Computed example of a mutant assay.
Amino acid sequence: MKVLLQRCKNASVTVDGEITGSIGHGYLLLVGITSTDSEKEIISLTDKLAGLRLFEDAEGKMNHSIVEAGGSILSVSQFTLYADTRKGRRPSFIDAARPEIAKPLWELFNDKLREKGFVVETGIFGAKMDVTFTNDGPVTIMLEA
Rank of each mutant, 00 (worst) to 15 (best):
L29G: 00
L30E: 01
V31I: 11
V31R: 06
I33Y: 00
I33M: 07
T34V: 15
S35Q: 13
S35M: 07
T36C: 09
T36I: 14
D37H: 06
D37A: 08
S38T: 12
E39N: 07
K40C: 15
K40S: 15
E41W: 08
E41Y: 05
I43N: 01
I43R: 00
I43S: 13
L45A: 11
T46H: 04
T46G: 11
D47W: 04
L49A: 12
R53G: 05
L54H: 01
E56R: 12
E56M: 05
A58H: 06
A58Y: 12
E59G: 12
E59P: 03
G60L: 07
K61H: 14
K61Y: 02
M62L: 15
H64M: 15
S65G: 02
V67K: 14
V67M: 07
V67L: 14
E68I: 07
E68D: 08
E68T: 12
L74M: 15
F79T: 00
T80M: 11
T80D: 10
Y82W: 05
T85K: 10
T85Q: 10
R86T: 06
R86A: 13
K87A: 08
K87H: 00
K87Q: 05
G88M: 09
G88A: 12
G88Q: 12
R89I: 03
P91K: 00
P91T: 00
S92K: 13
S92Y: 11
S92E: 08
I94F: 15
I94G: 01
I94R: 09
D95V: 01
A97T: 05
R98N: 10
E100Q: 14
I101M: 05
A102F: 09
P104A: 02
P104T: 02
E107N: 13
D111F: 09
D111A: 14
K112G: 02
K112I: 03
V120S: 05
E121I: 04
T122A: 13
F125P: 00
F125V: 03
K128L: 08
K128N: 03
M129I: 11
T132D: 15
F133R: 06
T134N: 06
N135L: 07
D136T: 04
D136E: 15
G137T: 04
G137I: 02
P138N: 12
V139F: 14
T140F: 08
T140K: 07
M142R: 11
